[in-house]
Simulated assay, not measured.
Amino acid sequence: MSSDSDDHVLAQAVHDLGSALWFGGAVMGIAGVNKSGADLSQGIDRIRVAGSAWQRFQPAQFGGIAATLLAGLRLTQVGGRRLALQQGFARVGAVKAGLAVAGAGATAYAAYSGSRIARLAEEAQRRGETVEVHDASLPTDRTPAEIRTWQRRQRVTQFLVPALAGANIVCNAWLVQSYRPVATARGVLGRLLPG
């Protein structure tokens, strides 16, 4: 096995594991972490439990994103000739890179939104106000306006993150399949004989 082949296998494995961690964590956050507080009786505790869980998971999630981005760069280097020779490879690779960067940004913004919700809830609690929420990302009609605004922002980004991470995984699947001999031949012929 050549060094390039070894690099490709290692980079692909790191990329796929990082993407799985990122996507799976985002879906688990929507389905579990943010909703789990609804089982508690007080709104402030509903926010605190989700905030604590996300704070503990954040290093792993951003590690998954870093693995996806860095291994993606390495995969681009290893597959460099395909960018020029194989029709569609560069376009899908560019879309994949854009999705990864946008997803990383959305993840960071979702984390920031969660921290703003937690900070605003704690400030309201210190002022003696009751913080009413259904769960960490879903307000009630009695949720303070500023918290409600940040919850709305977090709800949008919490669904955007797995959509972008999942689309990145789909593009990666297309790129991996393009290494099959028939796909490679079709892509090269498509580049050489357009139309």
Score class of each variant (00 low, 15 high):
residue 102 A to F: 08
residue 127 R to K: 06
residue 107 T to H: 06
residue 160 L to F: 04
residue 142 R to N: 14
residue 98 G to Q: 10
residue 131 V to N: 02
residue 138 L to W: 05
residue 146 E to A: 04
residue 99 L to Q: 12
residue 155 R to Y: 04
residue 102 A to G: 05
residue 140 T to C: 02
residue 106 A to N: 10
residue 148 R to V: 06
residue 113 S to E: 10
residue 118 A to W: 04
residue 136 A to W: 05
residue 144 P to G: 01
residue 128 G to L: 12
residue 169 I to K: 13
residue 110 A to W: 08
residue 143 T to Q: 08
residue 160 L to V: 12
residue 150 W to Y: 13
residue 150 W to G: 02
residue 165 A to Y: 04
residue 122 E to N: 06
residue 145 A to R: 08
residue 140 T to L: 07
residue 167 A to F: 04
residue 109 Y to N: 13
residue 98 G to W: 07
residue 114 G to K: 09
residue 144 P to K: 02
residue 98 G to N: 11
residue 132 E to D: 15
residue 112 Y to N: 09
residue 142 R to T: 08
residue 121 A to Y: 00
residue 149 T to I: 03
residue 144 P to A: 05
residue 169 I to Y: 12
residue 121 A to Q: 00
residue 157 T to L: 05
residue 165 A to Q: 10
residue 154 Q to G: 12
residue 113 S to R: 07
residue 169 I to L: 13
residue 149 T to Q: 14
residue 162 P to T: 06
residue 114 G to H: 01
residue 128 G to H: 04
residue 124 A to Y: 01
residue 129 E to R: 03
residue 115 S to A: 14
residue 171 C to A: 10
residue 116 R to L: 12
residue 141 D to T: 09
residue 157 T to D: 15
residue 102 A to W: 11
residue 146 E to T: 07
residue 161 V to D: 11
residue 112 Y to H: 15
residue 118 A to Q: 08
residue 136 A to L: 02
residue 137 S to E: 10
residue 122 E to A: 07
residue 99 L to T: 02
residue 116 R to M: 14
residue 152 R to K: 08
residue 133 V to K: 15
residue 100 A to W: 14
residue 135 D to N: 15
residue 130 T to C: 06
residue 162 P to Q: 10
residue 165 A to K: 07
residue 134 H to V: 14
residue 120 L to P: 01
residue 153 R to N: 11
residue 126 R to V: 06
residue 161 V to K: 10
residue 169 I to T: 15
residue 164 L to I: 00
residue 97 A to L: 11
residue 125 Q to A: 05
residue 102 A to P: 04
residue 104 A to M: 15
residue 130 T to K: 09
residue 156 V to L: 12
residue 159 F to P: 03
residue 127 R to C: 05
residue 145 A to H: 01
residue 129 E to G: 01
residue 169 I to V: 15
residue 163 A to C: 14
residue 165 A to E: 11
residue 106 A to K: 12
residue 140 T to F: 03
residue 108 A to V: 06
residue 146 E to I: 08
residue 141 D to Q: 11
residue 134 H to W: 11
residue 168 N to T: 12
residue 135 D to K: 02
residue 97 A to C: 06
residue 102 A to K: 11
residue 122 E to H: 02
residue 169 I to A: 15
residue 158 Q to P: 00
residue 153 R to F: 12
residue 152 R to E: 07
residue 117 I to S: 06
residue 157 T to V: 07
residue 129 E to D: 13
residue 117 I to T: 09
residue 164 L to V: 01
residue 111 A to W: 09
residue 123 E to N: 06
residue 166 G to P: 13
residue 126 R to M: 02
residue 119 R to S: 05
residue 117 I to Y: 06
residue 150 W to T: 08
residue 143 T to V: 09
residue 126 R to Y: 01
residue 105 G to Q: 13
residue 152 R to D: 06
residue 154 Q to R: 14
residue 98 G to S: 11
residue 104 A to P: 04
residue 113 S to N: 13
residue 156 V to E: 07
residue 128 G to Q: 07
residue 138 L to D: 03
residue 142 R to C: 05
residue 157 T to Q: 07
residue 168 N to I: 00
residue 111 A to Y: 09
residue 122 E to D: 10
residue 164 L to H: 09
residue 133 V to Y: 14
residue 171 C to F: 02
residue 104 A to Q: 13
residue 157 T to S: 15
residue 149 T to A: 13
residue 155 R to N: 04
residue 124 A to T: 04
residue 106 A to E: 10
residue 135 D to A: 00
residue 108 A to Y: 14
residue 162 P to F: 01
